[in-house]
Computed example of a mutant assay.
Amino acid sequence: MEMKASTQTDRTFNELLQAIVTGQILPGSRLREIELAKEMGIGRGPLREALNRLESRKLVTKVPHVGAQVVGLDVTEVIEIYQLRENLEGLACELAATRMSQTQLDALARLIEQHAQYLSDHDGQLYIEQEADLDFHFMIIQGSQNRWLIRLLCDELYHRVRMYRFQSAHNRGRPTQALEDHKRILEALQNRDGELASMLMKRHISAARLLLEQ
């Protein structure tokens, strides 16, 4: 029974996470436990645990006399997250340069090839649908093998970034330039040059932040 409840909680958490990030459940929406439990066919216990996990990811907040509510989108907050990313992902690159295996680097190179093919096939449009840009960053952070960086960036900050990217009309990036940035970062990682990889990553994220600020 305990394993079943845990499985239900995981499934419910992932379904709600995806719905919130992609805007199927809009910012500011109330998450009524009775209605959600009935709609998703689960008990109140696993649902409540899933909501608690979403709250820990800063995607849901508990409002007095209202209950669980999806957080709003705040451009200022996203810019602050990007400021954090500049330094934290720079550090992740520095660590990944010596800690990523050749297999991981090869996988990163294949991902970039897929990005390039996608842009070629779609006339240079954004590849946000594949979340390809964040996949690149995610793989490097995982490659840093630093549990605190992984927890902070992948488990918390990135969900807010994904949410903003999916739902914001201001999200109009520079996919071709981003791809070139990624190629240079990969080359630095392949050369095991952590200092250069860190500098390139900081510059890459800083450019994205400046675009948001404009």
Rank of each mutant, 00 (worst) to 15 (best):
M1S: 13
E2Q: 06
E2P: 09
T9S: 10
D10Y: 13
D10N: 15
F13P: 05
N14Q: 15
L16T: 06
V21N: 04
G23R: 07
I25A: 02
I34L: 09
K38G: 14
E39C: 04
G43C: 02
L47P: 00
R48C: 01
R48Q: 06
E49Y: 02
L54H: 03
K62A: 03
P64H: 11
V66A: 07
V66D: 03
G67R: 00
V71A: 08
L73A: 00
L73I: 12
V75P: 11
V78S: 00
E80W: 07
E80N: 08
I81E: 13
E86I: 10
N87E: 12
E89K: 05
A92R: 01
A96W: 04
A97Y: 02
M100H: 13
Q102D: 15
L105V: 07
L105M: 14
A107V: 05
A109P: 02
I112Q: 08
E113Y: 08
F138E: 12
S144L: 07
C154M: 07
E156P: 02
L157P: 07
Y158N: 11
Y158H: 13
Q167C: 02
S168G: 14
H170V: 02
N171E: 08
R172V: 13
G173L: 09
R174P: 01
Q177T: 11
A178P: 00
A178E: 01
E180F: 08
I185Y: 03
L186Q: 07
E187R: 08
N191S: 08
D193H: 05
L196E: 14
A197T: 10
L200N: 05
L200C: 05
R203Y: 01
H204V: 04
I205N: 03
A207G: 13
A207R: 15
E213I: 06
E213F: 06
